[in-house]
């Protein structure tokens, strides 16, 4: 059972990372199309919005173009964007490369990890933070010793609590408010719920394990 959950977490964060990495690709769109959740899942609403947008009768190329133009407007630029995808913006008075970015960088190095883009993109970019969670999820999934797995999961929980969750709701709210496109309002909702669920799951899991030990 645990094995499957760990693999699922890795897949979830890899998907989320890809959804916030410009440009949106066919592979990511296909992944969203193929995803199914139980109707009462907290993820259903966000996923449903995204999928409804993707089901609109529209040439695939035109659809991708529209989504990427909207993503540019929302998060990429030029100049001021409605939903800056950086933790520092929300936590440090609108400026980038604040302590949130430095702390994230240090943490990645502690885990002997570096974003494939190097440090060109601030370490607190949403896609990089989600990518780091995918990286930790893989480390947990691939761990051969229980302590190693527990360490990766604890690190995930800490990172979620102290880095990601401190700004993600504000970012998702900005995204929801700034876009009328169901794909992006859905993406905001889906992301926030998925991260919240994982946070709770990790809290429960680690609490149980602590209780057991």
């Amino acid at each position: 059972m645990m094995e499957e959950e760990l693999r699922t977490r890795e897949g979830l964060y890899s998907l989320l990372r890809a959804l916030f990495s410009y440009p949106l690709t066919d592979e990511v769109i296909d992944a969203i199309r193929s995803l199914a959740v139980m109707p009462d899942s907290p993820l259903a609403s966000g996923l449903g919005q995204m999928q409804s947008r993707l089901q609109e009768p529209m040439d695939r190329r035109a659809l991708m173009e529209t989504l990427n133009v909207e993503m540019t407007r929302l998060m990429e630029g030029p100049g001021r964007v409605p939903a800056p995808p950086f933790a520092s913006f929300y936590l440090h008075g609108g400026q980038l490369m604040g302590p949130a970015a430095t702390a994230a960088r240090q943490l990645y190095l502690e885990w002997h990890a570096i974003p494939e883009t190097g440090w060109q993109i601030p370490a607190d970019h949403i896609a990089i933070e989600l990518g780091f969670l995918a990286h930790l999820a893989r480390r947990a999934h691939q761990a051969t010793a229980p302590e190693e797995r527990a360490r990766a999961l604890r690190a995930s929980l800490d990172f979620l609590r102290h880095h990601v969750w401190t700004w993600l709701p504000d970012f998702c709210q900005a995204l929801r408010e700034a876009s009328a496109d169901p794909f992006f309002t859905g993406l905001a909702e889906f992301t926030q719920e998925a991260v919240r669920l994982d946070l709770q799951w990790l809290e429960e899991l680690l609490a149980e394990e602590a209780h057991r030990s």
């Binding site: 890795e10 995803l35 139980m38 570096i114």
Partner: peptide
Amino acid sequence: DFLKMAGASAGGLAAMAALGSGFR
């Protein structure tokens, strides 16, 4: 519930690990 969230597509979601973490 966490597992349930992925529902029938749990395997599919796990497969999305192929999208990568973007870290080395």
